[in-house]
Every structure is written in C-alpha cells, then in structure tokens.
C-alpha cells in the first residue's frame, strides 16, 4: 500500500465532525474523541486555525459550526432562477422570528454558491406578502405536538397547532382545541398573542373520536393523506382512519368525493353523514 500521512488526514475527520452540526462544544469534543483526535485546547485551536487559514469560516461561539466553505458550487441557470424564487418567497412570506432565521440561512447559502444574486433585486411579490406571520406555529407542529395558548378575538384557547393554510384572503391556522376536543380553523391575523405552553404527548389528543371511511375508484390512487390520518391499502379500496379532524370539517371534505367515499365507522357518523346528504339534496333543490 502507498504511504500516506495519517496525521494530516485527521483534518478530514475534524471536518466530518463539524459538518455533523454538533449542538454544543461538548458534543463536538466527544465526537472528535471518538475519532481518536486529541481534544486539548491547543490541538483544537490548531485544527480550527488550519481550517480558517484554508478558507473555512467557523463559528466557535457555542459550538463549532462551518459557516463558509472554500468548496463552493455553481448553480446552473435554472437552479439560479429557482434560488431567486426561493428568496422571493422568503421576502414575501416570512416575518419576525422566521424572517431572522431565514436571513441567517440565506447567508449560509450565499457562502456555498459562487453565483451572485443581488438581494435588492429580489422582489417582494405583493400577492403573497403578509400571509405567514406565524410560520413558527407550523414549525412547532411539525416536529412535536406542542400546546399553545392563543388569544383569538379576546378569548384565550389552548390549542395544538396542526397546519397553516395560506389563502389569498389570509392565513388560517388549523388547530385542535384541547378543551373542546375539536378542530378549529382560525384566521391568523385575528390571533393577537401566542404563548408556547409545552411539548405534549400525542396521546393527550383524544384518540376515541375517530372516523373510518373507505375510498374507492380512481380516487383510491390519488387520495392524499391528511395530518393524523392512517391508511390501510386493500385491493379495491383504501380504508382511512381519521382522528383529529373536526367532524363538520371532515364531512364537508368527504362529501366532495361523492360515491367514491363511504363512511364505515362509527354508525353514528354514518347516520349524521346520511342526514347531511339528504338535507343538502333538499337545499340544492330549493335554491
């Protein structure tokens, strides 16, 4: 085997650890030790200085984070256009905390690519501005179930945020009201205050209020599962269990699928749905 300089190659182990984005300096040190790298202050400083001298920009405040790399990429024309539209979306959609975070993210991307896109040239699309003031809620909803206390039109509600719906006339928060045990859709611009309460156990969400329905025909292939739905795929149909969606909201949605959707459990939901269908036939005949 050809000769190699193993001490020099350790720099790549250091880079690998830094690229794993350790949360704290202690985490980083532990990972370095696992790779057999000395972690005394002098050695670490020497590695960091070597990387900086080589063109890396490293944040050493709370942990060791590579902010800038000398190994850049060049976006092709289409990718560059895509990046422009991403910046347009950031400018138009984000506000507050999320805006700050995305600006840090933009800086990191700027340090990765050789393409130069002038920030001032990126427009704000007026049709989508002021729409997502509370992407933070979506953030929380995505990783864990969290409990929020929100002030909506003067009343405080404890809710689990589920999804933000962006529509041309405003942003709407779909959430589960923990007290009333039902889903709600609230206009985000009418929410005055949001207080994070805690991360909660998924079991706190009432699991007994489920509705089971089947989807058949061509819709079977195209049905997109909603948050909190579980599907069982059979030859001719898909059986879907829906736990979180508020019944009226769910029925309004299922009615759109026409004969390709049938509620199969519980019987009480079947009856309610049947009544709804009969009422609507009367209603549409009368208008």
């Amino acid at each position: 085997m050809s000769s190699v300089i193993s001490s020099g190659a350790k720099i790549f182990d250091v880079i690998e650890v830094l690229l794993s984005n350790p949360k704290t300096r202690e985490d980083a040190t532990m990972l370095l030790e696992k790779k057999g790298i000395k972690t005394d202050k002098n050695t670490i400083s020497k590695y960091i200085r070597t990387l900086r001298q080589s063109g890396f920009e490293i944040d050493t405040n709370e942990t060791f984070k590579i902010l800038k790399t000398p190994f850049k990429i060049t976006l092709n024309k289409n990718e560059e256009k895509g990046y422009y539209y991403l910046l347009e979306a950031i400018n138009s959609l984000f506000d507050g905390n999320m805006k700050q975070k995305s600006e840090l993210f933009e800086k990191r991307i700027e340090n990765l690519i050789t393409n130069k896109i002038k920030k001032e040239d990126v427009k704000i699309d007026p049709s989508i501005s002021d729409k997502t003031l509370y992407l933070l809620e979506e953030n929380l909803a995505k990783w864990d179930f969290v409990l929020l206390k929100i002030n909506f039109l003067g009343h405080y509600y404890k809710v689990i945020p589920l999804k933000l719906n962006y529509k041309t006339n405003g942003t709407f928060l779909s959430c589960y009201d923990i007290k009333e045990r039902k889903n709600k859709t609230l206009r985000v611009d009418l929410i005055k205050n949001v207080i994070f309460v805690k991360v909660i156990n998924e079991n706190l969400v009432n699991p007994y209020n489920k509705t089971v329905f089947k989807i058949t025909g061509r819709l079977k292939k195209n049905y997109i599962l909603k948050s909190g739905e579980v599907a069982k795929y059979l030859d001719d149909e898909v059986i879907i269990t829906n736990v979180y969606e508020e019944k009226d909201e769910l029925f309004d949605r299922l009615i759109r699928y026409g004969k390709y959707c049938e509620i199969i459990y519980p019987e009480s939901d079947r009856k309610k749905f049947k009544k709804k269908l009969e009422d609507l036939i009367k209603h549409y005949n009368s208008i």
């Binding site: 001490s7 190659a9 720099i11 070597t50 000398p70």
Partner: peptide, 9 residues
Amino acid sequence: ILITGFRLL
C-alpha cells in the same frame, strides 16, 4: 497550524 492538513485542503 497543521501544515500537512493545510496543504491537503
């Protein structure tokens, strides 16, 4: 600095 590591980079 670590000259070898620097040279490799």
